[in-house]
């Protein structure tokens, strides 16, 4: 499912990332967000969410959170 449909407070494993933007994909990779890695949904709103990747907190907008499948 897309990250926005996930349950806040739960840790998931990234299944697929497809932002249709090569550079964005590899940027996410360098933050530690790639297939097989854990990602925690800290909180979510209608069109954005806050996640924990490795030991950092990030806010992702709608487009990005829909491009990350867990």
């Amino acid at each position: 499912m897309a990250l926005l449909d996930a349950e806040p407070g739960m840790t998931y494993t990234v299944k697929e990332i497809n932002t249709s933007d090569e550079d964005m994909n590899s940027f996410l990779f360098r933050l530690g967000c790639y297939e097989g890695e854990p990602i925690t949904l800290i909180s979510k709103k209608k069109k954005s969410c806050i996640v924990a990747i490795k030991d950092g907190r990030y806010n992702l907008d709608e487009l990005l959170s829909e491009a990350i499948m867990v």
Binding site: L28, G56, R57, Y58, L63, L64
Partner: peptide, 9 residues
């Protein structure tokens, strides 16, 4: 155009 936004908190 698709404009992504990611911000470290």
């Amino acid at each position: 155009r698709e404009s992504f936004f990611i911000m470290e908190l």
